[in-house]
């Protein structure tokens, strides 16, 4: 009697995992039955055709990866720009008035040098203001318009201004995706950079780091660890979005669906293959990232050690 209880207690985790698996498989089977139960899935079709789709997935993977890496560059630059403190015009005008008053009160320094200083600082603050606002606008435009429209826009841009490249669907697609993910990653990077405590920067500056070196050796290593989860999210999102490239004539899974007798014949089989391929890739990726995160985890930074669920407490009545 006590034996199976001990057995259960020791292997509770496996029972738990088995149960979870049963629920997932059960629900999939249920959905399957709901959709194609009466008809049955044509397994022969799947085994015959899945290599075709695998081939298309490689196109997706490399288009996504190139776009993502380029997007990281855009995202970091724009995100960093957006952390720059832009002085509001009112404040700037106020400081100019103070400057003028002080100039009138004590006539130290030559008038010409003072004037030059005012012009230079105006230019500097103006440039900062402009750059900051351009960054804001970029992010809002990317975030606020559909990716589908952006891809079509990129394509028509090429058709009008660079017709010699207009047939390079994959190139246009990668550029469109890179710009799109750049906008989203800008927000991710900004969040990461701003989360690093200002004391860290101060400490780095206090031992003689320049602004750039403090970014490289102190802020970025911390920010990057913090933004791994949202970046993974963004990669997966981009990977799925890359199926849109079929509108540019790039061979993706969707285009096969459209070409292969499409919605008339083996539609369920086609969707089953595409779903399985996508799930296999995204789930594998998120497991790898989770493992990496745990492997490179630093105490006090980013994710904590995975917490166990709290034990269920059952109130005892009457002690």
């Amino acid at each position: 009697m006590a034996d199976w209880r001990k057995f259960l207690r020791d292997r509770w985790r496996y029972v738990d995992a088995a149960l979870a698996l049963a629920v997932i498989v059960g629900s999939i089977v249920y959905i399957y039955d709901l959709l194609v139960g009466s008809r049955g899935l044509d397994v022969a079709y799947i085994t015959r055709n899945y290599t075709l789709y695998l081939h298309a997935v490689f196109t997706n993977v490399y288009a996504t990866t190139i776009a993502f890496v380029v997007g990281m560059g855009i995202g970091f630059s724009v995100g960093w720009l957006r952390t720059a403190r832009a002085v509001s015009l009112a404040k700037f005008a106020a400081s100019m008035r103070v400057e003028k008053r002080e100039r009138q009160e004590n006539l130290s320094g030559s008038e010409g040098a003072r004037r030059l200083l005012v012009v230079l600082s105006l230019l500097w603050y103006g440039a900062k203001y402009l750059v900051r606002r351009v960054g804001d606008g970029f992010v809002e435009i990317i975030r606020g318009t559909p990716l589908y429209v952006q891809i079509l826009f990129a394509s028509s841009f090429f058709i009008v201004f660079l017709p010699q490249y207009a047939s390079e669907g994959i190139l246009i697609g990668i550029i469109a995706l890179a710009i799109n993910t750049g906008g989203y990653q800008a927000e991710i990077f900004r969040a990461g950079l701003q989360t690093v405590h200002s004391g860290q920067i101060e400490a780095a500056r206090a031992i003689g780091f320049s602004r750039l070196k403090a970014m490289r050796y102190v802020i970025l290593p911390q920010a990057l660890r913090l933004i791994i989860p949202p970046l993974t999210n963004e990669y997966i999102g981009l990977f799925k979005a890359s199926t849109f490239l079929f509108v540019l004539g790039v061979q993706t899974e969707i285009s096969y669906i459209a070409q292969h007798q499409g919605f008339a014949g083996d539609v369920f089989e086609i969707f089953a293959i595409v779903t399985a391929i996508f799930l296999a890739i995204t789930v594998t990726l998120s497991f790898i990232v989770q493992a990496l995160e745990r492997r490179f985890r630093i105490p006090g930074l980013g994710i904590e050690r995975v917490k166990l669920a709290r034990g269920v407490r059952i109130a005892r009545v009457g002690g």
Binding site: E202, A203, A206, F209, Y217, P221, Q222
Partner: peptide, 27 residues
């Protein structure tokens, strides 16, 4: 001039010894 802060401000992503060596090697 060295500076020590109220809230320590040690570099969170580095070990104690790396905190000390970072300035030596990089600056």
């Amino acid at each position: 001039v060295g500076m020590v802060f109220q809230s320590f401000n040690l570099f969170t992503h580095l070990t104690a010894i790396e905190n000390v060596t970072l300035g030596l090697t990089r600056v």
